[in-house]
Simulated scan of single mutants.
Amino acid sequence: MSKPTEAQEPLPEHRQRLLEAMSHAVAGKGYADTTINDIAALARVSKRTFYEHFGGKAQCLIALYEAASHQAIKVLRQSLDPRQDWHGQVEQTLRAYFETLASNPVLLRTLFIEILGLGTEGLAARRRVNRALADLIVEVVYAGQPKRVRSDPLVADMAMGIVGGINELVLQAIEADRVDRLAELTAPASRLVRAVTKVLEELS
């Protein structure tokens, strides 16, 4: 059977191919030097097909950022071991997170740094991802607590603070060219979670 033509392939497959093309393009050339022609050529689709899915290069990067982030969160959830207490789960999950980030260092730099330069739309996407990570932290740390505790606004805000702190540790590692050693952040990040949780317990 011959390979389906571009017009015959379902649009979701085109979108996936465009995201993969964006990933390869920015890994090879960086976001600033990547063009829509580059992305379309790597995805083996027309520019018209690109614009059927994305309004421009920035929107494609945001979609890639969210897809990559959701995949990382999926890895985190799969790494959870209910047999461990929350301290062990947090450490194991953070290690899996850092190892996932370090698996593609060039793309990591692009997603963590370039997303900040896309204006309000990029910041909104970053905040959505941060909220999903914060929700996961609350889920792990407060798994045995009543719903009213887990939904306390202070708990949610402090969890976002933890995510912000972890992001800064990652950015610092990127700037220092230590992406290959991201797993070393597991210990300080775990201590941060424990310290913030202890403060919340004292306030409650």
Rank of each mutant, 00 (worst) to 15 (best):
I166E: 02
V129W: 07
M160L: 14
L133V: 14
N130W: 05
V149W: 06
E114K: 00
G119N: 08
I115V: 14
D157W: 10
I137L: 15
N167Q: 12
L123H: 11
G165L: 05
D135R: 08
A125N: 07
D152L: 01
P153G: 05
D152Y: 01
R127D: 14
L133S: 11
G119R: 07
R150G: 00
P146K: 04
V170H: 02
A125K: 02
A132Q: 14
R131C: 05
V141I: 15
T120I: 13
Y142S: 02
N167T: 11
A125Q: 09
G164H: 09
A125H: 08
V170S: 01
V163D: 03
A156S: 12
L136G: 08
V163E: 06
I162K: 06
A124S: 13
D157P: 02
R131V: 13
E121A: 10
D157C: 10
Y142N: 02
Q145W: 05
P153S: 06
R128A: 11
R131W: 08
A134T: 09
V170D: 00
M160Y: 10
M158A: 14
V163Y: 06
V141G: 01
G117M: 04
I162L: 12
L116N: 00
A159F: 11
V163C: 07
L133I: 13
Y142C: 03
D135S: 11
D135C: 04
R128N: 09
T120K: 13
V170A: 01
G122S: 07
G117S: 07
R150V: 02
D135L: 11
E121R: 09
Y142G: 02
R127L: 14
A124T: 15
A156V: 15
A156W: 07
A134M: 07
D152I: 00
E121P: 00
V155Q: 00
V138A: 00
G161F: 13
N130E: 12
A143E: 15
R150W: 00
E168I: 07
A156R: 13
T120C: 00
Q145S: 13
M160P: 06
A134C: 12
E121C: 04
E139L: 13
P153N: 03
D157N: 13
I115T: 15
R131M: 10
G165V: 06
E121H: 11
L123P: 01
G165H: 03
G117Y: 03
D157G: 10
V149E: 03
V138N: 00
G144E: 13
R148H: 12
I137Y: 11
R127V: 13
E114I: 01
A159H: 04
R131L: 14
E168P: 01
P146M: 04
V163F: 08
A134G: 07
L116F: 00
G117D: 06
N167V: 10
V163K: 04
I166S: 00
A132P: 01
G144F: 08
L154K: 05
G122H: 06
P153R: 02
E168A: 09
I137S: 08
R131K: 12
N167D: 13
E121T: 15
V155C: 01
D157K: 15
V140F: 04
V129H: 05
L118A: 04
R150A: 03
R128Y: 07
R131N: 09
V141F: 09
K147W: 08
G144Q: 12
R148K: 09
G119I: 12
N130R: 11
M158L: 12
R148S: 09
R126Q: 10
I115H: 01
M160K: 07
G144P: 06
G119E: 08
L154I: 12
V163S: 04
R127F: 13
G119C: 10
E139K: 12
